[in-house]
């Protein structure tokens, strides 16, 4: 039997890769995909918990996360399209209009 912490460590690894991608990539779409990666890492740990603690509520949470991820993807990608239409670039370090 695989111990629970293995799953959790896997989840931590994927999450950290997502964080790294989000912090370092210039392309906004890849950054966005990194966010999805992080969400999936969380999902892995939730499903693992659900299995090991014998409680379905973890999976219910996954269900909601997927819902929110879908909504977020729709909105986020729409924003990216709008952004690209105005700035003609997908590189976030080319944009600093919100500078104080």
């Amino acid at each position: 039997m695989v111990p629970l912490n293995w799953y959790l460590m896997l989840s931590a690894a994927v999450f950290s890769i997502g964080v790294f991608g989000f912090l370092t990539r210039r392309n906004i779409i890849i950054m966005f995909m990194s966010v999805e990666l992080m969400l999936n890492a969380v999902n892995i740990s939730l499903v693992a918990f659900s299995h090991y603690l014998q409680d379905l509520r973890g999976q219910v949470l996954v269900f909601f996360i997927v819902t929110v991820a879908a909504a977020e993807a729709a909105i986020g990608l729409a924003i990216i399209i709008a952004l690209f239409r105005n700035k003609a670039t997908a590189h976030v370090d080319d944009m600093n209009e919100m500078k104080g």
């Binding site: 912090l23 950054m31 370090d93």
Partner: peptide, 18 residues
Amino acid sequence: QLRKVQTGFLHHYAIIMA
């Protein structure tokens, strides 16, 4: 002075958030 914190670069915000 405080305004300078707001650079407008997404990565700065991301790093601060991290």
